[in-house]
Design a protein around this nucleic acid. Structure first.
Lengths: 340, 340
DNA sequence: ATGAAAGCGCTAACAC
DNA sequence: GTGTTAGCGCTTTCAT
């Protein structure tokens, strides 16, 4: 298992010498030009195959000023390094990988500090990639706007905001919050806690939908029931324990991720409350684990499968110079046991 | 949200002209050469910054014959396109991304047909990447050996096999199977089903550990309890239902993934058997969902966090021409409710 | 149908 | 310190 990487890689000139022709002929042959004699082409192709020769794409791309690489950026939290492990974001990455493969593009996967999303632009400025996908807006709507103002070809998975210069693709967060809370109200719940960090645009939009549903039902908004927690499990648990022991009336929870929802269910049980009887719980994302958890989660389904194709479609359109509006993908509520 | 990508990208010559110096001076300045006057450097850097100019890395790499890109290949099943969505493999990808970022390498994420793993070599032959990581051996030990014989710098996440030319990094599968089955036997179980596809090397090794544990306890191996199922949920369910209704005695299941284990638990409940009382269930991987599932899964923990660093470390050593032995990472059993 | 030569954006001798 | 020049591996006129 050594590499002895000293097997000097051949290049076009070597193939040319072996075939007894010029470099240009090899180039033409390997690129399927019709100008080259069939016999010559055969010989060259045969040679290339038997030596595992393959055109050097960096050189080719340099020469052709061509590049088929898209950078996908997964921001991470400098402290916790948490986010790339979030199953939802990873599944989005998978979906984008599929879409890019289908369209014949390469995918460069990068992590950058969420506090410095603008550094992602270096991937573009340096020519490594011709366009960038950023997974999540985090707290940096402004930085993203700056990138867009600089004309960096950019698509962001996330919520659609009013003053937005960049192209976003995301689930319909308002609708997600609305559907979830309407459902809970329809089942007689009146004290519905909201779990998430409204500094994040997606969460903010879901909260908007949530409040709209409350307003429709003439339920007064109880600020004690807004729990600002990060997409992170330990802190969330503390906030939940706090709420449950505070005496504030609460008979349901809308959580901004399935993991958070399961924390809520655990906290409830630990506090001696039955889910869903005493506390109904609705999650968000509809990850595979939502099916298997205990209880199985009622949750807002995000269209992960579609997401990749939509994101890539938007970015390629942008690159083609077409005007591209932000896209909001439909979500729906999946009813399971945690809030039947 | 249009791109008007016609903002012609500047290049070194442009900066040189703006700064009133030659291209070489710009090159030196931007690369931190000590040969350039501080004032000149300041001016050039300032210019570059204000125009968001960044050295074109493709050209630089071509010139320097340098490349810092590693390809990570996630095979997919041509029919189901299933595998990139497997949460375990995605989490390994995340772990590798972290490790590569730490070491200053770029990561090219690709999918290739699992039946044609050899095509992954094109990433190397074409110079897109200087080394390749393949996630999983699937049924293609032989193809991987051919790649290694061709001296493609390659590290594979998977099991260690006898006639292996390539470098593998993986969990200790034999030990995983052994620990799990020993535990079940220690809890009085005697009819332990094994769930997985032993055509896959990792599964085969786990099965080996499983059988070794049976032999230690002088428990005869009952072939009816070997369920050959893919890493795929629907087919697995059928096999399980079949087993449970067959009348074959079975009081425990060792499944080769957490998802499979949860299927087993569901099938058991559907057949009116209590987990863990009537059927103890042990999973594999220890994904986040194992904690939240119902019941929480006893499972073999795979060291995902370590995996990325080990894989990358092995590949870089290989590239440095060092001999690199396959690495087997320790696993351990995590006790939860499904097999306490 | 094939070859010679220029040049893609950059770096590195080598001059001055 | 700075400029000039050749060349990384490839494609593509332009000749032949």
């Amino acid at each position: 298992m050594t590499s002895d990487a000293e097997t000097k890689r051949l290049q076009m000139a070597d193939i040319a010498r072996l075939a007894g022709v010029s470099v240009s002929t090899v180039s033409r042959a390997l690129n399927g030009s019709s100008l080259v004699n069939d016999a010559t082409r055969q010989r060259i192709e045969e040679l290339a195959r038997s030596f595992n020769y393959s055109i050097n794409l960096s050189a080719q791309n340099l020469r052709l000023k061509k590049n088929q690489t898209i950078a996908v950026v997964v921001p991470f939290d400098a402290q916790s390094r948490q986010h790339i492990s979030d199953p939802f974001f990873l599944s989005i990455v998978g979906s984008i990988a599929d879409a890019l493969t289908d369209r014949g593009y390469d995918m460069l996967l990068s992590r950058v500090d969420a506090e410095r999303l603008d550094t992602a632009a270096a991937l573009y400025d340096s020519g490594k990639a011709i366009g960038i996908v950023i997974i999540g807006q985090w707290r940096h709507h402004d930085q993203l706007n700056e990138l867009a103002a600089r004309r960096v070809p950019l698509v962001v998975w996330g919520g659609r905001l009013p003053q937005q210069l960049y192209c976003s693709v995301g689930g319909d967060n308002v609708s997600g919050g609305l559907l979830a809370t309407r459902h809970l109200i329809g089942r007689g719940r009146r004290h519905i806690a909201f779990l998430g960090d409204p500094d994040l645009p997606e969460v903010m939009l879901r909260q908007q939908g949530h409040r709209q549903a409350l307003a429709e039902a003439n339920i007064a908004h109880d600020p004690r029931l807004d729990l600002t927690v990060p997409f992170e499990v330990v802190a969330a648990r503390q906030a939940l324990d706090g709420l449950l022991s505070s005496g504030a009336p609460v008979d349901a929870v809308l959580a901004c991720s399935d993991l958070l929802a399961l924390q809520a269910a655990q906290a409830a049980r630990a506090a001696g409350r039955d889910v869903p009887r005493d506390l109904a719980v609705v999650g968000y994302d509809d990850m595979p684990l939502a099916v298997y958890s205990s209880p199985a989660l009622t949750t807002v389904h995000q269209p992960v499968d579609l997401a990749g194709a939509e994101i890539v479609g938007a970015l390629l359109a942008l690159l083609a110079g077409e005007p591209v509006a932000p896209r909001t993908l439909p979500v729906h509520l999946v009813l399971r046991d945690s809030a039947p």
